[in-house]
């Protein structure tokens, strides 16, 4: 493993050197993990076994537990999200009430953002030099939910903005933050809250239907999944411009896009909807047949995490070429409850 890593580093270094010769300057490699991506593994709730797996660009090098290997310490409990800003990566630890900041290329620990403001953080987004962190507070308490604002230069908490019940995924369009509000079972919420990022004040809540559970932005529009609906929000006036309904009443999940194509999961299969279409497809785009736990499109490839074993949450990753639907790589063993993928 180590020799492979060394070899690949060497190989990359040579590549860099050769390309740099043309530019007549020499660039040092930024770190072992510069040319590849991270798989964030939630781990089992309460077991403190969250981890990060590294996979090289060409999928030839797989390294598990990279945070633990580099820093000789465990990451913590339930890793929920990972975001990049400049040379830093921010890892949101839902169970450990903190955000771990590392060097995105070397995985070296830089700092920890924690404090009484942060309790059950879930997702993060970067905008204008600030990080916005959704924060449940006590899960069951509807009155302590916030967006914690973090200054990304100093990695300190600078503000908290109260929001509705259990904020999760976030999107920013035109100086406005869109917050998915899930509520806490059995009291599901059904709204997307809009916050003006100039004044840090909540300006609107948009009713999107029961239990919104996936949210993204594309072309200045916000797309939300709710039950078997895809809801499109027009961000110029913050109203719903379209609601598309699937034939099957089961939940849609894990929204991700490849340009105009939006991918989502339904019944263990993957569906594709082009935003130019007026209705949702009846037939799956890719058949998988196994419970999906997360997916993301990057550079035309679809990375799908799914269960290998539901008892302990050991997960596998399949990689598909979205243009041919071909399975490029099957069953990469990534970790426990593999969820998000982040590309360096």
């Amino acid at each position: 493993m180590k020799s492979i890593k060394l070899l690949s580093t060497l190989f990359l270094t040579i590549l860099l050197f050769s390309s740099c010769v043309e530019k007549e300057e020499i660039e040092e490699p930024l770190g072992d993990y510069e040319h590849g991506f991270f798989v964030l593994n939630e781990g089992n709730w309460g077991s403190g076994n969250a981890s990060i797996t590294y996979l090289s660009e060409d999928y030839s090098t797989l390294e598990t537990e990279v945070y633990k290997t580099v820093n000789i310490e465990s990451l913590g409990d339930v890793a929920q999200d990972v975001l990049f800003h400049n040379e830093k990566a921010y890892i949101v630890m839902n169970g450990s009430d903190k955000v771990v900041v590392v060097n995105r290329y070397t995985m070296e620990h830089l700092s920890v953002i924690e404090g009484s403001e942060i309790k059950n953080p879930s997702f993060m987004i970067m905008y204008n030099g600030k990080g916005y962190l959704s924060n449940w507070g006590i899960g069951s308490d509807a009155s302590d939910d916030t967006i914690v604002v973090i200054d990304l230069a100093s990695d300190t908490i600078v503000n908290t903005i109260p929001v509705g019940f259990v904020p999760n995924r976030l999107a920013v369009v035109n100086d406005k933050l869109y917050v998915e509000l899930q509520g806490w079972y059995p009291n599901n919420d059904s709204q997307v809250e809009v916050i003006d990022l100039i004044t840090n004040v909540s300006i609107k809540t948009i009713e999107v239907g029961n239990y919104p559970h996936s949210l993204m932005t594309y072309n200045d529009k916000v797309y939300v999944l709710s039950n078997n609906h895809i809801i499109e929000i027009n961000t110029s006036n913050d109203t719903i411009s379209r609601t598309l309904t699937g034939g099957d009443t089961d939940y849609f999940n894990y929204l991700t896009n490849n340009g105009d194509d939006l991918y989502y999961s339904l019944n263990n299969n993957i569906y594709k909807w082009n935003i130019g279409e007026i209705s949702l497809p009846n037939v799956e785009d890719i058949e998988l047949g196994i419970s999906i736990y997360g997916m993301k499109v990057y550079n035309g490839f679809l990375y799908v995490n799914h269960y290998a074993d539901w008892q302990t949450g050991e997960s596998l990753m399949n990689i598909y070429d979205t243009s041919t639907k071909n399975l490029i790589k099957e069953g990469i063993s990534t970790g426990i409850y593999s969820k998000t993928v982040a590309f360096n």
């Binding site: 077991s47 403190g48 969250a50 465990s74």
Partner: peptide
């Protein structure tokens, strides 16, 4: 609590 998560 566990090593990595608090409990109340």
């Amino acid at each position: 609590r566990t090593l990595f998560s608090s409990s109340n």
